[in-house]
Amino acid sequence: MNHTNTQDEAQKKAKPIAPKVKELIANTKSIILATVDAEGNPNSSYAPFVQVENTFYILVSFMARHTKNLAEGRKTSIMFIEDESATKQIYARERLTIEATASQIERDSETWNTVVTHLKETHGKVVDVIAEMKDFILIALQPTKGSYVNGFGSAYFVDENLEIMEHRNDVNHQPK
């Protein structure tokens, strides 16, 4: 086995530590959303979020296309991504992509009140205003699985608890 293969094998076995995933989430104020409508048309957007335990919550308006898609329980994907201005290599930005199930939280329920309080603490007084608007709803995004990438050839499956499971690909990038 040559030296390059040994390095490749070592990289696949060396999982990133779980706090790196949690650090990426902690350093992010909004998530990128990918949803689909009833006809399967894609929509990408973003929303400020908070994480309570292992669930992500967003307070979103029905004036946005993604809200209807989420309220109707369609599949969604959310992404946390390293800031462009902070990355050393634009092609290899650190990112966490999660498939999630969406469910609407009942207004004025215990969960609603707890999460809206967290949203206010994180995103400020604007939450007081939008939480009172009837077109805004609270959506819970429960992770089911995903992937974490932190460089070229460094991609890992993550589970519903956002824990690194295994290297995502046994085939490295190939030269031309």
Rank of each mutant, 00 (worst) to 15 (best):
M1P: 11
M1S: 15
M1C: 12
T4D: 12
T4R: 12
N5C: 10
E9Y: 13
A10S: 14
K12V: 07
K15V: 15
K20Y: 05
K20W: 09
V21T: 03
I25N: 06
I25V: 10
N27Y: 11
T28V: 08
K29S: 15
I32R: 07
T35G: 00
E39Y: 04
G40S: 05
N43C: 08
S45G: 11
S45W: 09
A47K: 08
P48R: 01
F49H: 13
F49W: 10
V50F: 07
Q51L: 10
V52H: 14
E53L: 06
E53R: 10
T55G: 09
T55C: 13
L59I: 09
L59E: 08
V60C: 14
V60S: 10
S61W: 11
S61C: 09
F62W: 06
M63F: 05
A64W: 06
A64G: 08
H66Q: 02
K68V: 08
K68P: 04
N69M: 03
L70M: 11
S77L: 08
S77H: 09
M79G: 13
F80G: 02
I81F: 03
I81W: 01
E82M: 06
D83E: 15
D83L: 10
E84Q: 10
A86F: 05
T87G: 09
Q89W: 09
I90M: 13
Y91K: 10
E94W: 07
A100F: 03
A100P: 07
T101F: 08
T101N: 11
A102R: 03
S103I: 08
Q104E: 14
E106T: 15
R107S: 11
E110P: 12
N113S: 01
T114G: 05
V115H: 00
V115A: 00
T117V: 02
T117F: 02
T117Q: 05
H118S: 06
K120W: 03
E121N: 03
E121V: 00
V127P: 07
D128C: 08
D128S: 15
I130W: 05
I130R: 04
A131F: 04
A131R: 04
A131W: 08
M133P: 00
M133I: 02
K134Y: 02
I139R: 03
I139M: 02
A140C: 11
T144G: 13
T144S: 14
S147L: 11
Y148V: 02
N150V: 08
G153P: 14
G153K: 12
G153H: 11
S154K: 14
S154M: 04
E160A: 15
E160Y: 07
N161K: 03
N161A: 00
L162I: 00
M165G: 01
H167G: 01
R168V: 00
D170I: 00
N172M: 02
H173R: 00
K176H: 07
K176C: 04
K176L: 07
